[in-house]
């Protein structure tokens, strides 16, 4: 009886234990921890950007006297052709990139995962119709699709996120359906049906948790890709407009000075690279830590 009680106490803390176990596993992975620290720092930077710099004066305010100063002690990242501190501009830009990446991926997950799950689980004609629509959708290269949508909707931060999210949906729908198909014919799904679990219960408790890893990894990779796409769109003038310090827009504005002032391109580019890389490192680490089969 003693043992029974003890195990019940254990089970009360099941949720906490699981989170703790995942965290322990995650912590062992050096790359993932570096990625997590950088990502956390970037998020902190994005959240507190308004306290560090004043948007009107530091970020978009011009200061012609200090224009085109190379990186040094006064201006760590140098200044641009209007004399704006690049450190402030690149730092403030973290906010745009992270928000664009996160929102577009979350929206894509929100729509794509239910589509893929229902198609994979229900199968039959429904699956065929839905997946052919998704196929038709993804024939158009995603960057082209995004450009098209931004052109139709008009250029703004919100429209950029919507466009990226929509071009992300087919990817999540596909990958979810594929992993649902590998899971749904397992005997444990049948045994769940045999104990009287409803379809909805099976999908939420059995199918999705077992498909979680590939979706999560895809989500982090996609966040990186979407940040790059957003920067690319801003670069060609279809994303966030200047003087907003979005990293792609910064690159675009700096390209004419690439010979005289290469640092103007260097820092926004480096920021994009570090952000995307650290997010991917976190995703990889999470995938390893969440897989119960890898636990020792």
């Amino acid at each position: 009886m003693d043992r029974v009680e003890k195990s019940c106490k254990n089970s009360a803390g099941v949720r906490q234990n699981r989170a703790l176990a995942v965290w322990r596993q995650f912590r062992r992975n050096k790359g993932a921890m570096i990625g997590l620290i950088i990502t956390a720092a970037l998020i902190l930077l994005a959240v507190s950007a308004d306290f560090i710099w004043d948007y009107e004066t530091d970020v978009i305010g011009m200061n012609i006297a200090d224009r085109m100063i190379s990186p040094g002690t006064k201006y760590l990242f140098g200044t641009d052709n209007y004399g704006r501190d690049m450190l402030a501009r690149v730092g403030y830009g973290a906010r745009y990139s992270l928000v664009i990446g996160a929102v577009s991926v979350l929206f894509g997950l929100f729509v794509g995962v239910p589509i893929g799950t229902s198609a994979g689980y229900l199968g039959g004609r429904y699956d065929t119709i839905i997946m052919r629509m998704i196929d038709a959708f993804s024939i158009v290269p995603s960057i082209l699709l995004t450009i098209l949508m931004v052109t139709v909707l008009g250029t703004s931060l919100l429209n950029l996120m919507i466009a990226l999210a929509i071009s992300t949906i087919p990817i999540f729908a596909r990958i979810t359906r594929a992993s649902v198909l590998t899971v749904r014919y397992n005997e444990y799904i049948e045994s769940a049906k045999a104990i009287g679990a409803s379809d909805f219960y099976i999908i939420t408790k059995y199918i999705i948790p077992n498909c979680f890893s590939p979706i999560l990894v895809q989500a982090t990779l996609r966040m990186g890709t979407n940040i790059i796409s957003a920067a690319g769109l801003s670069y060609i003038g279809l994303g966030v407009a200047l003087p907003t310090p979005e990293w792609g827009a910064l690159l675009s504005a700096s390209k004419q000075f690439i010979i005289q002032a290469p640092y103007l391109c260097f820092f926004p580019g480096l920021a994009i690279m570090i952000t995307v890389m650290s997010i991917n490192l976190v995703g990889d680490g999470l995938r390893d830590a969440l897989d119960p089969k890898l636990k020792r």
Binding site: E187, Y188, E190, S191, I195, G196, Y206, P209, N210, K293
Partner: peptide, 23 residues
């Protein structure tokens, strides 16, 4: 769903695959 598991239950052939690996 109400009857399955409650009135009639089943033990499956292969214990290696009949349990949910993530639960």
């Amino acid at each position: 769903c109400r009857i399955r598991g409650n009135e009639i239950a089943m033990i499956f052939q292969d214990p290696m695959t009949s349990l949910n690996p993530v639960m």
